[in-house]
Design a protein around this nucleic acid. Structure first.
Length: 616
RNA sequence: GCCGGCAUAGCACAGUGGUAGUGCAGCUGAUUUGUAAUCAGCAGGUCGUCGGUUCGAACCCGACUGCCGGCUCCA
């Protein structure tokens, strides 16, 4: 179906055709699948015996350059389905001419085009492709292009299908724009949280610990602690109650919740008691048999928790509940463990153990709308505090075709409607996406982009009519009857690991004062003023300002440079003049020299800046 | 998990078959400094791991581990 394309997308999509034509000049047997524009460029999926490597790029680019130089017109032609099929059979689609082997992927794509839709070919030079278009007028319009990287992709994104080679490239109307694009990418790489996390010693991932398991170094731990304090204070104001729960629980708990049966493969393997293992070993029980017996519940064990909700549910169930106690809001920075596929792990943004700023709200049906609303407002406020404005809101609905969900269709309808209503009240634009729900209910996700343009889900609010039923939760209503509560699962930041990862990139490591691991560094111009400098450090530390002093024998310029590179928000230069006047010479990370200020005045100023969580 | 690439000192990198190098960081000494790099010296590596080819391997081959880019997945 012809979609609306921007001019840039048209250009890039056209460049994908040029790429395909160039590849065919070198490898005429190449079979092409799809070649769309994407954010930042385009790709084309190709099946080819030759294993492409970046070393092939210059040769391919040379052919592409020849096609661009030839200034071939893009010609559109409407054809019948039969005619298209005929061309496909003779290998003529996505090809420079007839070939002995049919254009199999193109024929398959042709089958997917519904009756009544117009089928079009696009032709440039000898190259003919089945394509909805649109395209630029001619190949000569592509002034600047470059192949960027290789990847692999399953045909139609299904791992049962053949794996194709995906060649990525980009194109621009002018060379200058392309240069700017690559310069921007270089800048983005400098903000990458994996690089900054290492440079600034925020976190560490250690082979001896395990993939996807984060060690928070002291500097990173400060940032995390400040975030927890921030969220914690908000929650106290809003009537949440703090709880703590263990990292593991009996398998049966997660059988009841549905986590273990439905998502066994995305959890760390269960822990089985030693005596049970010995018993089974004596029976010569195979691993497969063991797994089976665990699955069937014949052997009990423990599971690292993949979610906190069952724990909070058991706290709810630990005493008789009355409607007077609702809404009951239980909050915890709860650490959960999930067995993510190794190829998916990435820095702090995709990990196997992470801590959610989690809470579960147990409420009545009448309270539901308001509770969702409050959660959304909280997420919103949190994002605004960091001025993370570049987010989108996604309403994740169930996929009617899938069986991975628990609960009745009526409950699902009810929950989905409640979410939709709440977002509409919030008055933000959102998209509804089928198949994005949690297994127990629909969710409203706040999705932000990282520096490289990849989407990450942060905050989430989820409505759940199902787990309370599975756990048989109840409370006594005002009418004396027993009722089932509704649950709201919510995490404004999502996971602290992912959130901090994105925060590092958002601020490029230049954290606002309240988050900065080191807030102030005192730089004596010589060791004669070490004692004076230390007295400032002592005084600032007493008021909780994170302050260090640089007592190295470097010259002041070198000390400044180091502090600047370490992204310390404020440098206080002290020498004879300051000592005599009881002042400090302030230099800020952001704007350089700020002049001299009495020691106590500056202290008050930064205390205010910290308390108000001012952004830099 | 799948496809491809990569792996040399804490970090950034050089080293295409003949006993491993540069810069920064580190340590020691000298210097005591006024707003983004003071000088000198020292130390630091089983070249990711294991196996193979070779008289000889950082370098060639294989397996494994980890990382990077994608794909699939993401309760």
């Amino acid at each position: 179906m012809p979609k609306e394309m921007t001019d840039l997308e048209k250009l890039r999509h056209s460049c994908a055709h040029v790429l395909a034509a160039a590849i065919l000049r070198i490898w005429p047997e190449a079979q092409f699948a799809a070649g769309p524009p994407v954010e930042g460029g385009f790709y084309y999926d190709v099946e080819l015996k030759h294993r492409l490597t970046p070393e092939d790029f210059p040769e391919i680019e040379k052919e592409m350059g020849a096609i661009v130089a030839a200034n071939q017109q893009f010609e559109r032609e409407e054809i019948s389905r039969d005619r298209a099929l005929e061309l496909g059979q003779s290998g003529r689609l996505a090809a420079l001419g007839a070939r002995p082997v049919p254009s199999k992927f193109k024929i398959d794509i042709l089958r997917e085009i519904s009756e009544g839709e117009v089928i079009t070919l696009y032709r440039n030079g000898d190259f003919v492709d089945l394509c909805a278009g649109p395209h630029v007028a001619s190949t000569g319009d592509i002034e600047a292009f470059k192949l960027t990287h290789l990847a692999s992709a399953f045909y139609r994104g299904d791992e049962r299908n053949p794996q194709l080679q995906r060649i990525y490239g980009t194109a621009f109307p002018t060379k200058q724009e392309m240069d700017a694009h690559f310069a921007m990418l270089e800048e983005a790489k400098k903000r990458d949280h994996r690089k900054l996390g290492k440079d600034l010693h925020l976190f560490h991932i250690d082979d001896a610990i395990g993939q996807g398991l984060i060690l928070w170094c002291p500097a990173g731990a400060i940032i995390r602690q400040e975030l927890q304090n921030f969220i914690g204070a908000e929650l106290r104001q809003q009537g949440y109650q703090q709880v703590f729960t263990p990292h593991i629980a009996k398998l049966d708990l997660f059988r009841t919740s549905g986590h273990f049966p439905y998502y066994a493969e995305s959890q760390f393997p269960p822990l089985v008691a030693r005596e049970n293992l010995l018993l089974l070993a004596n029976e010569n029980c195979s691993c497969a048999e063991l797994a089976n017996r665990i699955q069937e519940g014949e052997i009990d064990g423990f599971l690292l928790k993949p979610m906190n909700c069952p724990m909070h549910i058991r706290i709810f169930a630990s005493q008789p509940r009355s409607y007077r106690q609702l809404p009951l809001r239980l909050a915890e920075f709860g650490t959960v463990y999930r067995w993510e596929q190794s190829g998916e792990l990435s820095g702090m943004t995709r990990v196997r153990g992470f801590t959610q700023d989690d809470a579960h709200i147990f409420c009545s049906e009448q309270q539901l709308d308001e509770e969702i609303q409050k959660c959304l407002t909280l997420v919103n406020k949190m994002l605004m505090t960091f001025r993370m404005e570049n987010y989108r809101v996604r309403l994740g609905l169930r996929d009617p075709a899938s069986s991975k969900y628990v609960g009745t269709p009526e409950n699902w309808d009810h929950a989905e409607e409640a979410c939709r209503k709440a977002i509409q009240v919030l008055n933000v634009s959102y998209t509804e996406e089928q198949g994005e729900a949690a297994f127990y209910g629909p969710k409203i996700d706040f999705v932000v982009k990282d520096v490289l343009g990849r989407d990450w889900q942060l905050g989430t609010v989820q409505v759940d009519f199902n787990l309370p039923v599975r756990f048989g939760l109840s409370y006594k209503g005002a009418d004396g009857k027993s009722k089932t509560p509704i649950m709201v699962h919510r995490a404004p930041m999502g996971s602290l690991e992912r959130f901090v990862g994105l925060l590092i990139e958002h601020f490029a490591g230049n954290f606002p004062l309240w988050l900065a691991p080191e807030q102030v560094r005192v730089l004596p111009v010589s060791e004669k003023f070490a004692e004076f400098g230390q007295s400032i450090v002592d005084s600032y530390r007493l008021s909780g300002i994170r302050t260090l002093i640089d007592l190295s024998s470097e010259k002041i310029g070198a000390k400044i440079r180091l502090a600047q590179l370490e992204k310390v928000p404020y440098m206080l230069i002290v020498g004879g003049r300051e000592q005599a006047s009881g002042k400090v010479s302030v230099r800020s990370r952001k704007s350089g020299e700020e002049g001299t200020i009495p020691i106590d005045d500056f202290q008050r100023r930064i205390q205010f800046e910290i308390e108000s969580r001012e952004l830099c």
